[in-house]
Amino acid sequence: MRAARLLSLLLLLQNRGRLTADELAAELGVSARTVYRDVDSLISAGVPVYGDAGHGGGYQLVGGYRTRLTGLHADEAESLFLAGLPGAADDLGLGEVLAAAQLKLTAALPAPLRERDGRIRERFHLDALGWYREKDSPPVLVALAEAVWNQRRIQVRYRRWAKPQEVERELDPYGLVLKAGVWYLVAAVDGTVRTYRVSSILRLDVGEDGFERPDGFDLTAHWQDYLAAYDARRLRLQACVRIAPSLLAALPDRLDAALVRAVEASAGPPDRDGWVTATLPLESVDLAVPALLSLGPEIEVLSPEELRRKIAKTAAAVLDRYRPADAAAPLEDAGDRSSTPAVTVASSWSAARTPKP
């Protein structure tokens, strides 16, 4: 384990340049004291590592030093073959480059690892696109990727939801993110970092002027913060709901992950019927109504009252839409005396029920 950590420390310094003991400790998952000991061990072994004290100091290798300890273990080689995203590489215009790199890597491996490569390709396939979605390959993506890579300022015409719907923006493109098969651009406008859906870019002009990326900007960390802030912004309506046991078990398949986590965190003990009361964060009353109705009679909104009334009104309208022309005619088929879904939903939501403990 220690030998692997020493090699990792050496490769970190080789690939990233100067790093502080705290930064190395965070990367390696050890304490700063362990880093000090590991650096001493590398120096004793003849590796030219030197450190600068004080603010802004850190460790680095003597200029031009390169380690040749680049052999791959079997598990490391397998992880590289599994990590490829051929679809994303094609979108960015790098499909042929990726294929060539994989061929070179395969050719450089010893025979046992080449055999593992073939076995992995036969047995594993990564399809990152969400169900019921078409592939998102915006025509500006390749040019945009080049601007990101070369740090070139861009001018875009962008379509958004708010009015005016089409706007002109000058952006410093920091990075591209592929989320569930959809490409997003993370870019700065007037010093503020924002997110843009690439397929909504109507026109792209890449300028000659460059820009400076902020020191320490971490695209992955920024994206995680953005997702958390996005959920906090959109889920502003707090609804108190009762959920049937059968629906509770199926929630991961019916709601998005943020809503499922909120229910799990707030759910109380089951009542005498096995139902649980929980807090469900929602975007708005108008957007919540169809989403909750789609869950059928296995969920009941206790509050806010506005949401209860609107669900009852909508369910009654659905019931009226499917009511036979002869209002006196039964709504059930002769062979099936159970209520139709519309009737069940309407009766569930329109009844003024007292919340149960």
Rank of each mutant, 00 (worst) to 15 (best):
A162P: 01
A162L: 13
K163D: 01
P164K: 08
P164I: 02
E166V: 14
V167D: 04
E170N: 03
E170F: 00
L171A: 01
L171H: 02
L171T: 05
L171S: 06
D172F: 01
P173F: 04
P173W: 01
Y174H: 15
Y174S: 05
L176H: 03
L176F: 09
V177W: 04
L178H: 15
A180M: 11
G181D: 12
V182I: 15
Y184V: 06
Y184A: 05
Y184T: 05
L185Q: 10
L185C: 07
L185R: 04
V186Q: 06
A187L: 10
A187R: 05
A187V: 12
A188E: 10
D190N: 13
D190A: 07
T192M: 09
T192W: 03
T195P: 06
Y196I: 07
Y196H: 13
Y196W: 13
R197H: 13
R197F: 04
S199H: 13
S199V: 07
S199D: 15
S199G: 09
S199K: 10
S199Q: 14
I201T: 02
I201L: 10
R203H: 10
L204H: 02
D205L: 05
D205Y: 05
E208Q: 15
E208H: 15
D209V: 02
D209A: 14
F211R: 08
E212R: 13
E212S: 14
R213M: 11
R213C: 07
P214K: 03
P214G: 01
D215R: 11
F217E: 03
F217Y: 12
D218V: 00
D218Q: 06
L219H: 09
T220D: 15
A221G: 14
H222P: 08
W223M: 09
W223K: 10
W223I: 07
Q224N: 11
Q224C: 08
D225E: 09
Y226Q: 12
A228W: 02
D231W: 10
R233C: 07
R234M: 13
R234K: 14
R234F: 06
R234E: 14
L235R: 13
R236F: 00
L237P: 04
Q238T: 04
Q238G: 03
Q238C: 04
A239G: 13
A239I: 05
C240S: 06
V241P: 02
V241L: 07
R242E: 07
I243T: 03
A244L: 03
P245L: 05
P245W: 00
S246V: 11
S246G: 11
A249S: 12
A249W: 01
A250D: 15
A250K: 12
L251C: 07
D253E: 15
L255P: 02
L255N: 10
A257Q: 09
A257T: 10
L259P: 00
L259N: 01
R261V: 03
A262R: 01
A262C: 04
V263R: 03
A265F: 00
A265E: 05
S266C: 06
A267S: 12
A267M: 03
G268N: 13
G268I: 08
P269D: 14
P270M: 08
P270E: 06
P270G: 11
G274I: 05
W275G: 04
T277F: 08
A278W: 00
A278T: 02
A278Y: 02
T279N: 05
T279R: 08
L282I: 02
L282F: 05
L282M: 07
E283C: 10
E283T: 09
E283F: 01
E283H: 12
E283M: 14
S284D: 10
S284T: 14
S284G: 09
S284P: 08
D286F: 07
D286A: 09
A288V: 03
